[in-house]
């Protein structure tokens, strides 16, 4: 009786293990194969255009996530700057200016926090970067007041820069 029960138990265990192992391997394999077969996102536009749109939306998705997740602290803003620089390096040229605006906003916010923390040299350096980014995207006013305004809007109202 005991040997029958033990044999049944080992058969069931082995069967379960085979089911889970086979299922897991097949799940990941099928997932990858399906994504490969489906091709890049937006393939309705054709391979070249779809691929280009996919890259543009990927960069803008990263930009939007960075804006949503960044908090008004130096650490978070520094992290956001790092992420945005990484996104910008791999992004198509048409979205570079949109990323530059967010970079300038983050630098302005950093400068404002550093000013409040009595670190005027760091604040001046970050303001300078922000001003030069804004000039490159055609902003007419890149004075300290304009940069502080941009930062305050972004940090306190939770609105888009």
């Amino acid at each position: 009786m005991t040997s029958v029960r033990s044999s049944l138990l080992s058969t069931v265990s082995a069967g379960l293990l085979a089911f889970v192992l086979g299922g897991s391997l097949s799940y990941f394999g099928a997932e990858r194969l399906t994504l490969l077969y489906m091709g890049p996102s937006f393939s309705e536009l054709g391979h070249k255009e779809g691929h280009k749109l996919s890259r543009v939306t990927q960069s803008l998705y990263g930009l939007e996530l960075s804006r949503l997740l960044t908090q008004s602290t130096p650490v978070s803003l520094q992290r956001s700057v790092g992420c945005l620089r990484h996104i910008r390096a791999g992004s198509p040229p048409e979205v570079a200016h949109a990323i530059d605006l967010q970079l300038a906003t983050d630098y302005s916010a950093l400068a404002l926090l550093e000013q409040q923390a009595n670190d005027p040299s760091a604040a001046a350096s970050h303001r300078q970067i922000a001003a030069s980014l804004l000039q490159s995207i055609g902003w007419k006013d890149t004075s300290e007041g304009a940069l502080d305004n941009l930062a305050v809007h972004y940090m306190h109202k939770g609105t888009k820069p």
């Binding site: 069967g15 299922g23 097949s26 997932e31």
Partner: peptide, 21 residues
């Protein structure tokens, strides 16, 4: 038992994987 269970797992996992992708 092992062969049948593995086949059932492959079929289930494959269908689920394609659907989730």
């Amino acid at each position: 038992t092992i062969v049948v269970a593995a086949l059932a797992g492959i079929l289930t996992g494959g269908t689920l994987g394609a659907y989730m992708a």
